[in-house]
């Protein structure tokens, strides 16, 4: 090899790539973890307001989105199985399903947020400011946490589109699929966060 230039060989280490993804997931967990910590503190200090705030949220939409995310998590995991077995078409099908479900999740979120914003229930909104401090905090956290979560959904979708192309072009295939695997891990993280967001906001009793 020509020593006189930038290295031309690519150091490949799938296990290392996966470890990098896990470490990144840990940073995400801590990032959301701090939001959960804030939630815990403010709920502890305003139990009544959080209870009433939770009543304002639509349990049906929340449950629907939970189901959507769980199914999408299963489909992305199945697309990994498909690619491991060398079934490109099935992998693409599962990945496409995941992408569609992610989009449906976002549409639901949009409808949910839109209805609230229309009534002035948003940070700094008039209707919200008339309510007590606890309610302002509940909705502040609701928008911040589900907003940052939705941002992760969007990033996940971008990754899916990229990986979808890579599979189509055979860049990601049976013996080299760490991109798909890592995207899957990322998507499960998004699912994990939602698994906790759902009961904490929609199912307060």
């Amino acid at each position: 090899m020509e020593k006189n230039s930038e290295p031309t060989h690519v150091h490949r280490d799938d296990e290392g790539d996966k470890m990098g993804m896990w470490l990144f997931i840990f940073t995400e967990l801590l990032l959301f973890g701090m939001l959960f910590l804030m939630y815990a503190v403010y709920r502890y200090r305003n139990p009544e307001a959080f209870y009433l705030g939770g009543k304002e949220l639509d349990v049906f939409i929340g449950t629907l989105n939970t189901v959507i995310l769980l199914i999408s998590s299963a489909t992305v995991a199945m697309s990994i199985s498909a690619i491991q077995k060398g079934r490109k078409k099935q992998a693409l099908l599962f990945l496409g399903t995941t992408l569609t479900l992610a989009l449906v999740f976002l549409v639901n979120k949009y409808l949910e947020w839109g209805a609230k914003i229309e009534y002035g229930f948003y940070p700094g909104g008039e209707a919200l400011l008339e309510l007590g401090h606890g309610t302002i905090l509940f909705f502040g956290l609701y928008y911040v946490m589900s907003g940052i979560h939705a941002l992760h959904i969007i990033i996940g979708m971008a990754l899916f589109i990229y990986v979808f192309q890579q599979i189509r072009k055979e860049k990601v295939h049976q013996t080299d699929y760490v991109w798909l695997e890592n995207t899957g891990l990322y998507w499960h993280l998004v699912d994990l966060i939602w698994i906790f967001l759902f009961p904490l906001f929609y199912l307060i009793h």
Partner: peptide, 26 residues
Amino acid sequence: PVIGITLLLTVMERVLGVGVFDPALG
């Protein structure tokens, strides 16, 4: 990531007035 989210929330507090650190909003 802890400082990341903290700084981000401060930005949101300044721009949107979310209320998570503002004693005037609880």
